[in-house]
Amino acid sequence: MANVIVSHDSTDRYATVTIDRPDAGNAMSPAVIDDLGEQIETVAADDSVRSIVVTGSGRTFSAGADVDAFAARADDPDAVIEYLESFSELYAIIESASIPVIGRVNGPAYGGGYELAMACDVRIASTDATLCPAEIRMGLVPPFERLVLELGDGIARELCYTGGVLEAEAVAETDLFSRVVAPDRLDAAVRDVAGRIAARSPNAVAQTKRAMVRHRADAIARASTYRRALDEQCVRHPDFAESVAAFREGRDPVYE
């Protein structure tokens, strides 16, 4: 069974790429990450598609990294780093796509799922949606770069230090989401934005995306490079193994 499915809306000329692991909270295993990247690249190369919608099946956007994948690599820090790097590579694919990528944030977006939403060009959220930089809960440095740029330094610090949960409805008036709507209006809002993108010059939209991504690329690259270096230290620290074990065992971690 495919972990990622693609559907097309021929009227408004967009494709929807859906993580289809509802029983696992749409967690992003290495296979899911690879498949997402391949599907997004394939769809972006299709001239009949003017935008891409990324979402999760059921009531969850994505729970983020697959904890079993972390656990299987817990004794091999290099393998953990490779897994973490694959997330960054996926986000780079989204940003380098020549057409806009719309995040349909239908529910919880945690860890890698939160950053997947943040990497999208446009985010449209249900009032059921929540964001959480959950990496800190796993003994890692949360990706904070896009959150700081979109929401501001103060709130981002609190969320990243605590692994707190941010409700979409509470930040509806900020720049984090372009729209926050009731769950039964989410698909209509996505379709409206995708349809209006399809009505514009494909060339102008592509060049606009290129300019807007470039506008903040240097700031994101500098911070993320340093963060990834710190993650290399984190995965070799006992706190990381304890965090993963505690999560899998359903208990509070005990740090020395």
Rank of each mutant, 00 (worst) to 15 (best):
M1V: 12
M1N: 12
A2Q: 15
H8C: 11
H8G: 15
S10K: 12
D12M: 12
D12H: 13
V17P: 02
T18L: 05
I19V: 15
I19F: 05
R21T: 07
R21K: 14
A24K: 09
G25Q: 06
G25K: 02
N26L: 09
A27Y: 09
A27V: 09
A27C: 15
M28R: 13
M28Y: 15
P30N: 10
A31V: 08
D34R: 10
D34F: 10
D35R: 04
D35K: 08
G37M: 14
Q39W: 13
I40G: 01
E41P: 08
T42S: 12
T42Q: 08
V43R: 04
D47P: 14
D47V: 15
D47A: 11
R50G: 06
R50M: 14
S51D: 14
S51G: 08
V54G: 02
T55I: 11
S57W: 09
G58Q: 07
F61W: 09
S62I: 04
S62A: 05
A63H: 05
G64F: 01
G64N: 02
V67L: 07
V67P: 02
A69I: 06
F70E: 02
R73Q: 12
P77F: 07
E82F: 07
F87T: 00
A92Q: 05
I94N: 07
E95C: 13
A97Q: 12
S98Y: 14
S98C: 13
S98T: 10
I99A: 06
I99N: 09
I99H: 08
I102D: 09
R104S: 07
V105F: 05
G107Q: 04
A109H: 02
G111H: 00
G111I: 00
G113S: 10
L116K: 05
C120G: 08
D121F: 07
D121V: 13
S126M: 05
R137D: 01
L140Y: 00
V141R: 01
P143L: 13
F144Q: 00
E145M: 04
R146G: 05
L147W: 01
L147T: 03
G152Q: 01
D153C: 13
G154H: 08
I155E: 02
E158N: 02
E158I: 00
G164V: 00
V165Y: 01
V165S: 01
E167R: 01
E167I: 01
A172M: 08
F177K: 03
R179K: 13
R179S: 14
V180N: 01
V181W: 03
P183R: 12
R185W: 10
L186P: 03
A188T: 15
A189Y: 09
V193I: 15
G195E: 10
G195Q: 12
R196M: 14
I197F: 13
A199C: 15
R200D: 10
P202M: 08
N203T: 11
A204S: 06
A204V: 05
A206Y: 04
A206R: 01
T208L: 04
T208W: 03
R214M: 11
H215I: 10
A217C: 04
I220C: 08
A221W: 15
A223Q: 09
S224V: 10
R227N: 10
R227I: 03
R228G: 09
Q233A: 08
C234H: 03
V235Y: 01
V235E: 01
E242F: 02
V244Y: 00
V244N: 00
A246G: 04
G250V: 11
R251M: 07
D252Y: 02
P253I: 03
E256Y: 10
